[in-house]
Design a protein around this nucleic acid. Structure first.
Length: 457
RNA sequence: GGCUGGGUGGCAGAGUGGUUAUGCUGCGGUCUGCAACACCGUUUACGCCGGUUCAAUUCCGACCCCAGCCUCCA
């Protein structure tokens, strides 16, 4: 079998992937912060992670997939004007922080299911792992990596020579450009491990700790939970590209200080979906949800297909026009496959070519090109069907489950349709065309096939 | 300002030191009463300026532009 080669952000190169334990892969994916719905840009990263998992499994590996839910740890902005996102969220929704976390967590899981992403083996919430996080911070304190300020316990990034290696950070450059008040931090790159509650206001989420009542910093949850579920050094850690300079840099710093490892053997990042030449941001008004696309008449699978048309490591420009191209392509793929009938023998040649691309750093656009080549080849239909169903184990487009919708048209439309068929057998073409126009006014399109007319909306 | 990454045909998006994916769209054709579907064919593509080379979109350098991060963020 073709070796699996993956791009590792830490090394900044593609290298062969070999599991730390033969046959088994530990995979940790940074999950959502649940103060709002996920937008399609967020979702693109989870589609990438799902493809990664499917490719590993396609290669016969057993994947232990862990995804966290960040339901606490939203640091209040360091600037005086900053607000706690969670607080803003509770005001907006009228829910408590706990209710909100559950609500948006469920919405997120629902989005993933609709995108046909495989369910992780473990979902872990930050609030369910406060003890582990406290223990982790305690360990860092014992090892001399922390200091205390007025508002929390901080990680001293200067204690690690390798700090910022993942992002190739030029720390002196950062200092010149820092736009935010440092507070009590000693260095710009230092970050909170544990934040104290403000004595003047009661937080909805807070816990007692050896340092005082408060809540964990954002980064510590991933170091603590990944260690719990996958060990001190596991195979792959994923997330969005924006996590490279801060979140993952800090996770690595914590784990390196505590465990002496770089946390994961491979660091992989999904790149942004751009809207109007800028990243889609929850803070802007123009963020698009999966549900928004459905309201626009697209299916969630259309969006999944769309994600496969670009490599995960390139930014992609979103527009309804380009999504429409994917919808058309997927519709043709499904319909064609349906018409092929029952599957026969898989074409080893096409399968092999497909695998050589997916194993080459998840090159789905190239793999998809092979699939189209196969579809338009002179292979027998049964072989095409079998091959397509096989490669769909990776694509996840549910090709095999699809069937044409049985259109339920109102009786008026059905009568018109019947009338038109009569006109056609009598070769009254003008009348037939009039009837077609009338049917069109009800919103239905007619396709005349060998087996009679076919209605669609 | 610093750091990281990128600029490919109408759109999206692969890839390569010489033969220039793939999907969608447009155009031409076959099929069809017409249309639609399907199928076949098809259009001056590689930001700009230098350099290396027999040959550069592909390698090197400068420049311009774009995105991300430096602030919660997929």
């Amino acid at each position: 079998m073709t070796p699996i080669r993956l791009f590792d952000t830490y090394e900044r190169k593609i290298r062969e992937f070999k599991p730390i334990s033969p046959g088994k892969v530990g995979l940790y994916a940074c999950g959502p912060t649940v103060y709002n719905y996920a937008h399609i840009g967020n979702l693109r990263t989870y589609v990438f992670e799902d493809i990664l998992r499917r490719v590993l499994e396609f290669n016969g590996l057993e994947v232990n997939h862990v995804v966290n839910i960040t339901d606490v740890g939203h640091l209040t902005s360091d600037a005086d004007t900053g607000e706690d996102k969670m607080e803003v969220g509770t005001r907006r929704t009228g829910m408590t922080a706990w209710e909100m976390a559950e609500f948006y967590g469920d919405a997120f899981k629902s989005d993933l299911r609709q995108l046909n992403a495989l369910e992780p083996a473990t979902w872990c919430k930050a609030t369910d792992h406060i003890e582990e996080q406290i223990a982790f911070v305690q360990d860092l304190e014992d090892k001399g990596y922390t200091y205390r300020t007025d508002d929390g316990i901080y990680f001293n990034s200067q204690k690690l020579n390798s700090y910022g290696y993942l992002a190739r950070l030029d720390i002196s450059g950062l200092q010149g450009g820092a736009r935010v008040e440092q507070g009590g931090r000693l260095h710009v790159t230092d970050f909170a491990l544990w934040k104290f509650s403000n004595p003047n206001e009661k937080r909805q989420m807070e816990w007692v700790s050896p340092w005082g009542t408060g809540f964990p910093g954002w980064h510590i949850e991933c170091s603590a939970m990944s260690a719990k579920y996958l060990g001190d050094f596991f195979d792959i850690h994923c997330g969005g590209e924006d996590h490279i300079p801060i979140h993952h840099t800090n996770e690595i710093a914590q784990t390196e200080a505590s465990k002496g490892t770089r946390l994961a053997n491979f660091w992989m990042h999904g790149y942004f979906l751009q809207l109007n030449n800028a990243k889609m941001a929850k803070s802007k008004g123009d963020f698009i949800r999966l549900e928004t696309l459905v309201e626009e008449g697209f299916s969630t699978h259309d969006y999944r297909y769309y994600c496969l048309t670009a490599h995960y490591r390139t930014q992609m420009s979103f527009s309804l026009e380009s999504l429409d191209a994917s919808r058309t392509a997927l519709a043709r793929m499904r319909q064609t496959a349906y018409d092929w009938g029952e599957p026969g023998e898989i074409s080893e040649e096409y399968l092999h070519r497909f695998v050589s691309y997916i194993n080459d750093d998840l090159n789905m656009p190239r793999a998809l090109a092979v699939v189209w080549e196969m579809i338009r080849s002179d292979l027998a239909d049964e072989a095409k069907k079998a091959t397509l169903l096989k490669v769909d184990e990776v694509m996840g487009l549910d090709i095999g489950a699809w069937h044409p919708d049985a259109i339920e048209a109102p009786a008026e439309v059905m009568n018109l349709l019947q009338e038109r068929e009569l006109a056609r057998t009598e070769k009254h073409w003008q009348r037939a065309d009039e009837l077609r126009d009338m049917i069109a006014e009800y919103g239905y399109v007619i396709e005349d096939t060998g087996n009679g007319p076919k209605l669609s909306r």
